[in-house]
Design a protein around this nucleic acid. Structure first.
Lengths: 98, 98
DNA sequence: AATAATGTTCGTAGTTTTGCGAACAACGAA
DNA sequence: TTCGTTGTTCGCAAAACTACGAACATTATT
C-alpha cells in the first residue's frame, strides 16, 4: 500500500492492450498483419461505421504507436509501425509465456 | 459498409485485450503467471488502491474469464482460469505472429 | 452471541470511450 | 480556379471505466 510496485513494462503492456481492446481495431491490425499496409478508404468501405469514427480508431492506434500513416495525397497509407509492433510482441510474449 | 465482417475471434481478442488493458490487472495477471494463485488480501497490501477498487478489477478479470475465485473462508483464493487463459494465448499468438 | 477479518456491493463523482453528422482542411484534376 | 475526393476535427450525447468510502455480508474465533 506504499510505493507503486507496477513496472513500466506493465504499464506499456496495458497501453498496448488498450489499443487493441476494440473489435474494430483488432480488425484493422489483423488486416495490416496480412497485407502490411492499407488505405483508410478501403477500411471505410468494409466497416459499418462512420468515417469520423474510423478516423478516431486509426488515431488511437497511431497514438499507441502501433501504426503509422504516410500521406499519398489525397489518400493516406497506413502501415504497421514495425519497431513498436516488435516491442508489443515481446511484451505480450513475455506476459503470455508463449 | 454492409454486413459485419468482424469475426467472433476478433471480438474475443478485443474482449481479452480489454481485460488486460489496465496496469493493475496486468500486475495481477503477471503475479498469477508466477505463482498461479494468490489471495486478494495480499494484493491489497501491495497495491495503492482501495479494497473496493481492487475487488472491481478482480471482478473484471473474472467476468472476462481469465481468473476464477475459490472461497477459502474468510479469504478467497484467485487462480488463473487455465482453459480460457489457453484460449487467450492462442488468440494472441495468432494475432501477433503477423 | 459478540467480535474480528475478509471481501463485495452500493452510491457517488469525475474521466474516458465510442459514435454520429456537420463543418472544415488538403490536394489533385478538370 | 473550381470541383471532387479523402480525411480530420468539432460539438454533442450516451455509455463505460475508474475510484473512493460507507455499508453490508460471511465466516472463524473468542
Amino acid at each position: 500500500m506504499t510505493i507503486d510496485i507496477i513496472t513500466d513494462e506493465q504499464r506499456k503492456m496495458a497501453r498496448y492492450a488498450k489499443a487493441i481492446s476494440h473489435p474494430i481495431r483488432v480488425y484493422i491490425l489483423s488486416l495490416l498483419g496480412k497485407q502490411s499496409c492499407c488505405y483508410s478508404g478501403d477500411l471505410s468501405e468494409d466497416l459499418p461505421i462512420a468515417k469520423s469514427t474510423l478516423s478516431q480508431h486509426l488515431k488511437e492506434l497511431k497514438d499507441a504507436g502501433l501504426i503509422q500513416g504516410e500521406t499519398k495525397a489525397p489518400k493516406i497509407k497506413y502501415c504497421v509501425n514495425k519497431e513498436n509492433w516488435a516491442e508489443a510482441q515481446e511484451l505480450f510474449k513475455g506476459f503470455l509465456k508463449i
